[in-house]
Amino acid sequence: MRTLGIIVATALVTALVTSAVWLYLYQSAPGPAADADALPPLVSAEPETPRPREKVVPVPSDMVFSEPDQDTSDLIAKDLAMPVRDYDPAELTPQFSDSRGQRAHEALDLMAPEGTPVVAVEDGVLVKFFDSARGGITIYQFDPTETYVYYYAHLQRRADGLREGDSVRKGQVIGYVGSTGNADAAGPHLHFAIMELGPEKNWWEADALDPYPVLSAE
């Protein structure tokens, strides 16, 4: 029995010593590998310099149209009358390429008091009387050769007694300055255009020519 007690005591001592050793090793050992090898905390990268945003340039309401390269020498040789009576040619300014919304003006605006007489710029035929929301009261006139069509718009009214198909003489009164159509009532004027006719002689499909060098020529 004594021997058995010694064996049991020895076993208990051995167990206690072993536990103490393991406890010591556990406390002094480094932490788990994941902690020992852990990366330093991530430092947030410098924020990327923002790219400048592309500048959005709005399309201007007054767009720029290029000046046409046209030969108007034949029209200049005609020595057309000024379409508004007593209008000073020195008051004319180039307006053909001015914008009117999304389109070019392709004409001249001759400012004058309401009711000022409008005259035929040369001999010819009044081929069309046309009233529209944009041009108001208008007249289309062919020249004698039916090469050109002259367009008079924003009229207050046409001259009394005139009819489509009538022949007119240079300087004859055919209408009066107004502000009909989309013209500003505060600025009555004649919208005058010159167009070159095609073989079909369709006044609504003619090619616009710049009236400024024609009417301003000395």
Results as ranks from 00 to 15, higher is better:
residue 197 L to T: 10
residue 186 A to P: 02
residue 94 P to G: 01
residue 136 G to V: 06
residue 98 D to Q: 13
residue 197 L to Q: 10
residue 210 D to L: 10
residue 100 R to V: 14
residue 32 P to F: 07
residue 92 L to G: 04
residue 59 V to R: 06
residue 69 D to A: 14
residue 211 P to I: 00
residue 168 V to L: 03
residue 209 L to M: 15
residue 161 G to R: 09
residue 167 S to N: 06
residue 217 A to K: 03
residue 143 D to E: 02
residue 199 P to I: 11
residue 147 T to D: 12
residue 42 L to R: 13
residue 37 D to M: 09
residue 30 P to S: 04
residue 117 P to G: 02
residue 124 G to S: 03
residue 215 L to T: 12
residue 15 A to M: 12
residue 31 G to C: 00
residue 162 L to M: 11
residue 58 P to E: 02
residue 75 L to E: 06
residue 37 D to S: 08
residue 88 D to T: 03
residue 213 P to S: 07
residue 218 E to W: 03
residue 107 A to E: 02
residue 178 G to K: 04
residue 216 S to V: 10
residue 218 E to G: 13
residue 64 V to H: 06
residue 13 V to C: 12
residue 184 D to A: 12
residue 58 P to N: 01
residue 84 V to D: 08
residue 218 E to S: 13
residue 156 Q to F: 09
residue 1 M to F: 04
residue 111 M to Q: 07
residue 106 E to I: 00
residue 100 R to M: 13
residue 59 V to I: 06
residue 32 P to A: 12
residue 64 V to S: 09
residue 147 T to L: 01
residue 178 G to D: 01
residue 214 V to S: 09
residue 111 M to H: 13
residue 120 A to R: 05
residue 174 I to V: 06
residue 42 L to A: 15
residue 56 V to I: 07
residue 75 L to K: 05
residue 170 K to W: 00
residue 124 G to T: 04
residue 41 P to K: 05
residue 150 Y to G: 03
residue 28 S to L: 08
residue 182 N to F: 05
residue 70 Q to G: 02
residue 14 T to K: 00
residue 210 D to T: 14
residue 169 R to M: 07
residue 137 I to N: 15
residue 70 Q to L: 09
residue 28 S to P: 02
residue 69 D to G: 04
residue 52 P to E: 04
residue 216 S to A: 15
residue 13 V to A: 15
residue 200 E to L: 12
residue 54 E to C: 00
residue 76 I to R: 15
residue 48 E to Q: 15
residue 209 L to V: 13
residue 132 S to F: 08
residue 193 A to Q: 14
residue 114 E to N: 11
residue 90 A to Q: 09
residue 6 I to A: 12
residue 119 V to H: 02
residue 207 D to R: 14
residue 163 R to H: 11
residue 196 E to F: 08
residue 40 P to T: 12
residue 62 D to G: 08
residue 185 A to Y: 09
residue 72 T to P: 01
residue 176 Y to E: 07
residue 109 D to V: 06
residue 34 A to N: 08
residue 10 T to Y: 00
residue 84 V to H: 08
residue 3 T to P: 01
residue 49 T to E: 12
residue 197 L to D: 07
residue 142 F to Q: 12
residue 41 P to Y: 00
residue 155 L to C: 05
residue 161 G to Y: 08
residue 83 P to Q: 02
residue 22 W to N: 10
residue 94 P to Q: 08
residue 63 M to C: 03
residue 196 E to H: 13
residue 154 H to L: 06
residue 94 P to I: 00
residue 112 A to R: 03
